[in-house]
């Protein structure tokens, strides 16, 4: 029987779920299965490294976190074994679920994103290419929705239209101050840094710099527009490349390597070809460096990179 892009049967007997997933589908099921395998390898490996990096941060909880990190490592080894990949994802899912509960309510948003992605790569039944195609569509939808919501939330809170939030961060956070020193005069940065954010009436967190305001608005506009490209067949590649560009830009201002690695790998799922597999060696270098730095063997501090 002819198949829809994510593998369901023809249009006349498609369910609402089939139609929804078809929007972000398009590959033959076996191609989709390979793409999901590649992403699953990255995801479980990423989680295992993160699990070990958590340990020094909470030495009092090592009795719980160390066994979880060990289980995650076993899952990371299993995910490269053809018949163990789906089970590895299920094991990693259980570990991350435990970590979300342990860190609740302070769990970072990218931990929830990791959890959602793990559910999607753990659900396919081994050897079922139709499930894998649905998982690929689910992952792409997740990437587009998360990007869209980050933009929509900025609209809801209204602190980007005149650059107020970024002005506050330029004074509050060294990373932001460093990045914005090219568009804001030193005296203005000094003024922003001197404002007491814990005092009612402190401000104004507003700057007289058109470039700064344009950059602030460009962020939420890009976050709202790129998902539309991602979910259109013709614009998919441009949407993914634009998303990767946005991630790089965000790293210049706010170093969030953990979120960036996860999100860039989600965006790579929109490109034709096995880009997740191609990117894995580079990701491994970052992982090895982070673990080496955490152990004190290499320079740097993974905490400062927000890789956790």
């Amino acid at each position: 029987m002819p198949k829809t892009p994510h593998g369901a049967s023809r249009a006349d007997d498609r369910t609402w779920a089939d139609r929804l997933l078809a929007v972000a589908g398009g590959e033959a099921p076996d191609v989709a299965a390979t793409r999901v395998d590649d992403f699953r390898r990255f995801l479980v490996l990423y989680g295992a490294v993160r699990s070990w990096l958590w340990l020094p941060l909470a030495p009092d909880s090592s009795g719980l976190l160390a066994p979880l990190a060990l289980c995650h490592t076993v899952a990371a080894a299993m995910v490269f074994v053809p018949r163990g990949a789906e089970w590895a994802a299920r094991g990693a899912l259980a570990v991350v679920l435990g970590q979300v509960v342990w860190s609740f309510p302070l769990a970072a948003n990218h931990l929830y994103l990791e959890l959602v992605c793990l559910v999607l790569v753990a659900l396919p039944r081994p050897g079922d290419a139709r499930d894998a195609a649905a998982a690929l569509s689910g992952l792409r939808w997740t990437a587009a929705l998360v990007l869209f919501h980050t933009g929509l939330q900025k609209v809801f809170y209204g602190a980007y239209f005149r650059g107020d939030f970024l002005a506050l961060m330029a004074g509050a956070d060294e990373r932001f101050g460093r990045a914005f020193r090219f568009v804001l005069p030193g005296a203005e940065l000094e003024r922003l840094a001197g404002l007491d954010r814990s005092r009612t009436g402190a401000g104004p967190f507003r700057v007289d710099s058109p470039i700064f305001v344009v950059a602030s608005n460009a962020v939420w506009i890009a976050e709202l527009c790129l998902p539309v490209l991602l979910l259109s067949r013709r614009g998919r590649v441009w949407g993914a490349l634009g998303g990767v560009g946005l991630m790089v830009g965000i790293q210049v201002v706010a170093l969030e390597i953990g979120f960036a690695l996860l999100f860039v790998n989600l965006l790579l799922l929109f490109l034709p070809g096995r880009w997740n597999a191609r990117a894995l060696p580079f990701t491994l270098v970052i992982f090895v460096w982070a673990l080496g730095a955490a152990a004190g063997w290499l320079p740097g501090q993974p905490v400062d990179w927000n890789l956790l």
Partner: peptide, 8 residues
């Protein structure tokens, strides 16, 4: 598919 779509 409904399970995957529900997550979306």
């Amino acid at each position: 598919a409904p399970l995957f779509a529900a997550i979306v």
